[in-house]
Design a protein around this nucleic acid. Structure first.
Lengths: 337, 337
DNA sequence: AGAGAAAAAACAATCGATTGCATAAATATC
DNA sequence: GATATTTATGCAATCGATTGTTTTTTCTCT
């Protein structure tokens, strides 16, 4: 690459080729309107000088951006960071899926202070579409914005009459799987660890409860609204273990991260897993394979999920209507039950 | 928010307030050039109509973007995905640090096919600066681009005479820490697991080797060029364990992810950790606390590292010159040694 | 009241690429 | 060879905000 003069703009290139900027623009777009000869000439010059058109200018003109937004509303838990294992796993998968399709990924982490946070993102003019990871406690905001902004897909739980397009796992079924498994293993007193104000977690709770009711154990189900974050969950769980007279025989943690904290807390109290207490997690993250003991968990297929999120989003960007997707969970039995 | 007419542009707002677009622009920027009265009037209208200026247009005019690029060159390992735990941990931390400072994060994952990949990113006009996670085997490309593109900072190993600005851990010292610890624990035959064509890993190897030389154990050091990815590392390691007559007494894995694979492989061969073989990892990722047994590792302070990366980058964007940063590693002794 | 200074707002160029329309050049038709 | 038609290019408006310059308005002071 020899560059006596820096070729920075279409205008520079046009001067060099002794044509108009319009011609250069069309030539680089390989438009049929330009003769083959000038087209190759200009493309050659562009290559030689390593010319890259200014994307901002193009975006302004074409009213698109080539970037997809990914955001993580942390409504229910202000202390929760993007560094949470679930989020970063999903994020990595989305990055792979989007890059494969030629899109850039714009990441924003939000702590919804008011209902305008989502409008701000979709109206920012920076992105062609948005993927939201988790409904948090913001279903209403999501519904409201989804009504006017089409290219948006949400990872999370599906509920009848929701206005937004979602991809997720059948949390109810997953919760039932977990509870059935604990019951089958002989547990009667079961504790649910998780904050039911978050849609996905409440669905898991409902599934768990349904299984308990069916087994006639309804009265032996307790709820510990443990926080999602590992650090703050431990005290919550410890308080519970310290307080109750009767220890639970089984614990259904609403996420692997909570389950990890539970394992740590149980070990602090000298309770053996699975001998004294059995523990089931949810998510099937990589880390669940490396806990002590290895964690029985309800697996969500996040790789497929990320693929679906991107597929649906691109179809919505293209103007199509799309359905919601609910995937099947899978119980993975390991050493903790 | 009542909006009979959608207020989408400065012009719309100007018409509404019966002033010129220039005035609106200055009013929203809270410029002293505009009278307090009109300023509050216009700001009020903007708020009322939920007006958001078009960022693309602003970027075109101001020649900045408000976004920082983060890229992960996967030169040494094509199979390696963004979903690798080290990368996603770093990514999450960077997202936090950048968001805090009001920048957006643009993620691109690259498999460097030719030396132009980096030019393409920095010349894309999409970002104000770039953070590169890991030198991979691309030091030359990084040096070349760093010479002409200032706002770029690289996470990785520091080496004399490098042209690019780096933030990282003292890998040599870390390697020495790990080896010294293994030697102190009575190991003589030590195996290094890691690909030395990657700068950071080769530095860790050098430190390890230095410790061995000092202890007179130079001849008992072997290298297994295990791949970075968990899935492909297991076969490499298994092959090594199956082949050698004398099993190593100590293993220094160049990363926690490799160490995890080593633990799995060792357990497959019926070797007990730490009784038969002692294992040290590197990185200090969250997952290292949840392996069986809990992993002794050399910790890098990634939170501080992410903070430094962002700080240096912003200073470089502002035109300052900056030094490299080399942080101290810390040995964390757990149950695997 | 009127000149001069200061404050406020309007005007217009600009960022760099895209694209509808007009025009010039080349080819085809009779 | 003159006109009709196609093909290739140039011209200029446009996307929406920012900002230097100019003009208008308001205020001050004699």
């Amino acid at each position: 690459m020899n560059k006596q003069i820096q070729i920075r703009t279409l205008k520079d290139l046009a001067r060099l080729a002794d044509v108009s900027t319009g011609t250069v623009s069309r030539a680089l777009a390989n438009s049929e309107l330009i003769s083959k000869k000038t087209r190759t000439l200009i493309q050659g010059l562009a290559l030689e000088h390593g010319f890259q058109p200014n994307i901002t200018a193009r975006n302004l003109r074409t009213q698109r951006t080539g970037a997809i937004g990914v955001t993580i509303p942390l409504g229910h838990e202000t202390g929760q960071h993007v560094s949470d294992p679930f989020f970063i796993t999903m994020l990595g998968l989305l990055a792979d899926a989007l890059t494969e399709r030629g899109y850039d990924l714009m990441l924003s982490r939000v702590i919804p202070a008011n209902s305008g946070w989502l409008d701000k993102i979709v109206d920012s003019g920076r992105i062609d579409g948005l993927i939201v990871i988790g409904q948090s406690d913001q279903s209403e905001t999501l519904d409201r914005v989804a009504a006017r902004y089409r290219p948006m897909v949400i990872w999370g739980g599906y509920e009848k009459n929701q206005q937004h397009c979602s991809v997720g796992t059948d949390n109810f079924k997953g919760g039932r799987l977990a509870a059935d498994h604990l019951i089958e293993r002989g547990c009667e007193r079961i504790a649910f660890f998780g904050d039911p104000s978050v849609r996905e977690l409440s669905q898991r709770y409902d599934g768990c409860r349904a299984a308990m009711v069916k087994a006639g154990l309804e009265k032996k189900l307790t709820v510990v609204p443990a926080h999602l974050v590992a650090d703050t969950a431990v005290p919550d769980i410890s308080a519970f273990l310290g307080a109750t007279g009767e220890k639970p025989q089984g614990i259904f943690a609403a996420s692997d991260v909570i389950a990890m904290s539970a394992l740590r807390a149980l070990s602090d109290y000298g309770l053996a897993v699975p001998a004294d207490v059995k523990v089931v997690g949810f998510d099937g993250l990589a880390l669940s394979e490396h806990t002590v003991p290895r964690l029985t968990t309800v697996r969500q297929d996040l790789t497929a999920g990320a693929g679906h999120l991107v597929d649906l989003l691109l179809r919505r960007i293209a103007g199509e209507e799309t359905d919601n997707i609910v995937m099947d969970p899978e119980l993975i039995v390991r050493m903790s039950t």
